[in-house]
Design a protein around this nucleic acid. Structure first.
Lengths: 189, 189
DNA sequence: CTGGTGTTATGACCTGCTACTAACTACTTT
DNA sequence: AAAGTAGTTAGTAGCAGGTCATAACACCAG
């Protein structure tokens, strides 16, 4: 059957385009040893868009990906704050926070929310994270609303211990104990 | 002077294309209130390539980023990698990584670099951070190149201990011990 | 009024296609 | 053997989004 060859060629075509989406029909034709007409027929059958269309969608995805790890998004939204006591923030997760090609939210987004919340809880001018212990309990998924709750524990002088519990619904996602340090703005380096 | 208007328009053009690189000359012309000829002249003077060229380079960058799964997921740039051994990455810091209104780099950028590097070091399909201990030693400033070096320590079954040392020049900025867990892609929630 | 700068218009050409028609090949069915 | 059919190829017209060269204008200064 010649239709066997055809199916084989279709598989090759899909393989070819997925590994190198930037080939013109001419190059594909040469690579598969058939005419451009055939390549175009095949692309039509398999509904693979033309090169420019493929480039366009890739370029669009590229721009949207460049916007990742923007500070405003990372911090989440502060809902409640009792200075030097406790605070609550929510982070609405989006696809570009995903880890690899999964639906899982990258751990550093969860960290960023928790760490910035810990700092925001302390009512001093200049506060930085000194050290921390973290535990990730369960995964959070893209689209979920992540709630973080901080509570100030003990403090000695300029050092405060702030614990942060992060959850999605009633699922505990993350627990962290942050030691944050209030600095006089001179002593930085 | 009319050449003032021209310079002004050139600035607008650059602004326009940098915020939205996917505009055709026709759209740009409409947006600037001049003819397509003028837009093309201006693009020529400013040596801004045509739409397709812009899409093409964006698409190429996107593919080259996807070619190595590991490189893509690292915050910063992966410089060297010995799978299951050690790795090295650099993060060029920019103003938008600053903490509040200072020149200090936000701690979560440093965390993100370290955590993603730790994960990239482990040569398994699906790896997530389970827990971590962190210590921030010195501040890093906007504009500095931050180097992170990971080293795999002990491991038991699916758990690996990866330590990461982060420095700027010979100044130690951060030390972290990450316990990362390799998952079978089913057991996620 | 003449020259120089800036802007627009026009037309020929290019790439990488789409959409269509016509024809040719190989293989099967009647 | 004749007819039918699936698969392939060639060729044409047209489109988008340009390049490049040339020409024609508008406007202002000296």
């Amino acid at each position: 059957m010649r239709s066997e060859l055809k199916k084989q060629r279709h598989r090759q075509l899909i393989e070819l385009i997925s590994t190198n989406p930037l080939m013109t029909d001419e190059e594909i034709a040469a690579s598969l040893g058939v005419s451009m007409s055939t390549v175009r027929l095949d692309r039509g059958i398999l509904s693979i868009p033309e090169l420019r269309e493929r480039m366009r969608t890739m370029a669009e995805q590229a721009t949207s990906r460049l916007k990742s790890l923007r500070a405003e998004e990372v911090v989440g939204e502060l809902l409640e704050l009792e200075p030097d006591g406790w605070a609550l923030s929510v982070l609405n997760t989006t696809r570009d926070m995903a880890f690899r090609h999964t639906n899982l939210v990258g751990d550093y987004y969860i960290y960023a929310q928790a760490a910035t919340l810990a700092i925001a809880t302390i009512d001093r001018e200049m506060v930085v994270v000194g050290s921390a212990r973290l535990r990730y309990r369960r995964a959070a998924f893209v689209g979920e609303r992540i709630l973080a709750r901080s509570k100030v524990g003990t403090y000695k002088g300029d050092k405060y211990v702030v614990s942060v519990h992060t959850r999605v619904g009633d699922r505990e996602v993350f627990v962290g104990r942050f030691v944050v340090v209030a600095k006089n703005s001179e002593e930085l380096a």
